[in-house]
């Protein structure tokens, strides 16, 4: 496999070299960043909490092995599918060489394994008994090894992922008519928000929030936390979408005789109305708690947020406009 994987590895090495050659800041910050990460790893691994955790894990080797197996199997299966897709579309795909699939898929678990090994090594040097280190390492290695093989051969049902517009709805389709209007610029930002807010993405945010709640949290509070997460995500996505679309649309509209004011109004106002609606919804939910102080604070926050949205949207439009050549 060594010689077969050469073009892929060489291409990646050259691409990285070019990136580092082009960006001086990245080039000079790489080594300090790596050193800082290693120092942080060393510091974290020498903490008493880490040693206690490892000693606790050493008591349940079977559980540890099963956990390592499950996580590695799921991760490998998913990672393999992604790597396969990437290699199939690679510019080197047509070359008469064996695709370095195993090499590409194994790199991630090997890197994670090396980090875990280093962290256990540091703990070993700062007081972890060698028996406990062995009691953690052995089940982890066995579980990860079996998990990698399982994940490699595990064929999960593949879901067909469509283009981003699957998640955005067509607005005001009027067969046979065309009404000249800059209003669809606003739809562009809304469609981008819907793509960023599709269930596949928001489900992850919701899961993280739910996992972060204490076990004894009442259901109503958990639901409120989920609702708040979705609203905050929607507000952030709307703001980011306006900024992103401003730059793409300014470029696309550059050869047309459009004025900045019309462009900004068309792009920002629909997204801002959505922001307003989301804020009103959130305030209505806060009002249901029956705590005026909380409602007042929420109203002030919503006002500040809506002002920020207008300012940042208009600023993004102005910057994007100025980047064009004329007018």
């Amino acid at each position: 496999m060594g010689t077969h994987s050469t073009p892929h590895a060489q291409a990646r090495r050259l691409q990285w070299r070019n990136v580092l050659a082009r960006h001086a800041l990245l080039r000079w910050s790489c080594a300090p960043l790596a050193a800082a990460l290693l120092a942080a790893l060393g510091w974290g691994a020498s903490r008493p909490g880490w040693i206690t955790l490892l000693r606790g894990c050493a008591v349940h080797p079977l559980l540890l092995a099963v956990l390592a197996l499950a996580l590695t199997a799921a991760g490998t299966s998913r990672h393999k599918r992604r790597v396969q897709g990437r290699l199939a579309l690679s510019w080197l795909a047509a070359l008469p060489i064996e695709t370095p699939l195993l090499h590409e898929v194994a790199r991630l678990p090997l890197a994670v394994g090396a980090l875990v090994l280093a962290a256990i090594g540091v703990a070993l040097s700062t007081g972890l008994p060698s028996a406990d280190a062995g009691g953690v390492l052995l089940p982890l290695a066995i579980g990860a090894g079996i998990g990698f093989v399982t994940g490699w051969y595990w064929r999960r049902a593949e879901r067909e992922l469509g283009p981003g517009s699957w998640y955005a709805s067509v607005r005001r389709a009027r067969a046979g008519t065309l009404r000249a209007s800059l209003r669809p610029l606003g739809y562009w930002a809304l469609a981008r928000t819907r793509v960023w807010g599709r269930p596949r993405v928001t489900a992850r945010q919701v899961l993280v929030v739910l996992l972060g709640l204490p076990m004894a949290t009442p259901g109503a509070q958990a639901l409120a936390a989920v609702a708040a997460t979705l609203i905050v995500w929607h507000l952030l996505a709307l703001l980011a979408a306006v900024v992103r679309v401003a730059f793409a649309a300014a470029w696309w509209m550059a050869p047309t005789p459009t004025r900045l004011g019309r462009f900004t109004a068309a792009l920002v106002h629909l997204a801002w109305l959505r922001q307003l609606a989301a804020c009103v919804l959130a305030l209505a939910a806060l009002a249901a708690f029956g705590r005026p102080a909380l409602l007042h604070r929420g109203a002030a926050l919503a006002g500040a947020w809506l002002t920020l949205c207008v300012i940042s949207g208009a600023t993004a439009c102005a910057i994007a406009w100025r980047r064009r050549a004329h007018g």
């Binding site: 389709a173 000249a180 209007s181 800059l182 209003r183 669809p184 562009w188 047309t256």
Partner: peptide, 21 residues
């Protein structure tokens, strides 16, 4: 623009060029 329809693209350019249709 990926997330606009063909009709919407035409509508935007028509408005930019101050056309009615």
């Amino acid at each position: 623009p990926d997330l606009l329809t063909g009709r919407q693209c035409l509508e935007i350019h028509a408005a930019a060029k101050q056309l009615r249709t």
